[in-house]
C-alpha cells in the first residue's frame, strides 16, 4: 500500500479537503490561518511523493520554498491578528470588515 503513489495522493487530497472545510465552515481567524497551513502541507506532500515517483530532487526544492513562504506568511498574518484583536477584542472573521465596501458607504 505504501508502495503506490495513489495512497499518498488520497491522503493529500483528504488533508486539503479538511483545510478547505476549515476555511469555509469556521469563523475563528486562528483556525482559518491553521487551515491554510494544513493546505500548504498537503500540497507539499503531493510534491514530495511525485518527486519520489519521478526520482527528481526539484520537487523537494519546491517543497522547501513553499515552507519558506509559509514562514513569511506566519509572521505577517500573526502580527496582523494581534493588531486586529487589540482594536476589535474579537476573533470573529466577520467583524474584520474595515476594508469592505459595506461600511465605507
Amino acid at each position: 500500500m505504501a508502495d503506490s503513489i495513489l495512497a499518498y495522493i488520497i491522503l493529500a487530497s483528504l488533508l486539503f479537503s479538511l483545510g478547505i472545510l476549515g476555511v469555509i465552515a469556521r469563523k475563528n481567524i486562528f483556525i482559518i490561518y491553521m487551515s491554510i497551513e494544513l493546505m500548504l502541507n498537503a500540497v507539499n506532500l503531493i510534491f514530495v511523493s511525485m518527486g519520489r515517483y519521478y526520482e527528481s530532487m526539484n520537487a523537494q526544492v519546491i517543497a522547501m520554498l513553499i515552507i519558506a513562504v509559509a514562514a513569511a506568511e506566519a509572521a505577517v498574518f500573526l502580527s496582523m491578528i494581534v493588531v486586529l484583536y487589540k482594536q476589535k477584542k474579537s476573533l470573529d472573521s466577520d467583524v474584520f470588515n474595515v476594508l469592505s465596501q459595506k461600511e465605507a458607504l
Binding site: 491522503l11 483528504l14 479538511l18 476549515g22 469556521r26 486562528f30 483556525i31 491553521m34 494544513l38
Partner: peptide, 18 residues
C-alpha cells in the same frame, strides 16, 4: 495526520486546534 486535521477543524478553542 487525518486525526490531527480533523481535530484542528472541529475544536472550539484555538489552543486545542494548534
Amino acid at each position: 495526520a487525518l486525526a490531527g486535521g480533523y481535530g484542528m477543524v472541529t475544536c472550539k478553542q484555538p489552543i486545542h486546534s494548534a
